[in-house]
Design a protein around this nucleic acid. Structure first.
Lengths: 167, 167
DNA sequence: CAGGAAAGCTTGATACTTCAAGCATCAGCT
DNA sequence: AGCTGATGCTTGAAGTATCAAGCTTTCCTG
């Protein structure tokens, strides 16, 4: 009788366990921390703030819905609801795409830009305090590289991939 | 005129930006990936699965609500709702604490244990595939250490800390 | 041993996410 | 032109999270 037969799952080793739990704890706490910071200072969750950031960086401050969903790594449905909310706040407006009548642009308004301008410093400070201020440059580099690998692994090139913005 | 006056925020450098975006992308995609895997195979989100895992590891398969919230890094309110749902599934049951009449235990039922037994292999496989299979041992070590630092930084020892399970 | 503050947990309302359709337009084919 | 399937985006319902009370019990202090 083999203790590790073909269909016996390869459980995590103690060290892997520690790594995985640290991962979960850090991400759960960080999400909570940033969501709260932004909810307090900007009246929106972290992911919504990220949408505004994507828009301000885009040419003419606008992006097609699907493209924005892809950059934010979320579903188009989620994005639709989110943009509806941001539109209600006056921070984003929708525009029809002239070349494809199905298409929609999300456009950052001047009010949206103003919010970003007002809130960005505090947000950067929060990110620094939680992350960069605590890690050595080597740790930052290693962290970035590991995250890069993980992110790439979760969005394979080929067709048939289950990616949020294609669902 | 100084280009970096006292109240000018320290924006992220290009490399810091890349690190931070990789971080966000990896965590967003991974959350989505695991939530979907577990929703499909176990009919519950990732965080609920984590609650069952905590319970199965605890003595007598039970934990006080606040203690469980602490281990899962979430608020007690969120936990209350979650346990209510898991109770409806028959995977967890509540028990009064004999020594403190305010207290409640969340207890893993046999059905809950069975679900865990059935689902755990697939979940470990998903975590391996997304994370451990793609990183070298050195990267894993560095990742774990960085995450450890971040997690600790977000739960300071002293009183007055804004921790989810104390809210 | 009161009295008030804190701890432990829950509840209901509101906000957000997911899921499964759905509508309209477009691209490719005949 | 007329199908047919794919693309782009939205919608409403159901599930989950957050927020601000709320209730009960315990702890602390005088």
């Amino acid at each position: 009788m083999n203790t590790a037969s073909a269909d016996e799952p390869r459980w995590l080793s103690d060290e892997e366990q520690r790594t995985w739990r640290a991962f979960m704890h850090a991400t759960t706490l960080l999400e909570d921390h940033l969501d709260r910071q932004l909810q307090r200072d900007a009246g929106m969750p972290h992911i919504y703030y990220g949408l505004l950031v994507q828009l301000v960086e885009a040419p003419r401050r606008r992006l097609r819905m699907t493209e924005l969903a892809m950059k934010a790594k979320i579903t188009r449905s989620r994005l639709s609801h989110a943009i509806a909310r941001l539109e209600k706040n006056g921070w984003v407006r929708r525009e029809d795409c002239p070349s494809d009548k199905r298409g929609q642009f999300a456009v950052l308004t001047d009010e949206g830009y103003a919010v970003l301008e007002r809130v960005a410093p505090g947000h950067v400070a929060a990110v620094r305090q939680a992350l960069f201020d605590r890690l050595t440059p080597e740790q930052q580099k290693a962290l970035g590289e590991a995250m890069q690998v993980i992110a790439e692994g979760l969005q394979p090139e080929g067709a048939g991939a289950d990616l949020p913005w294609l669902r």
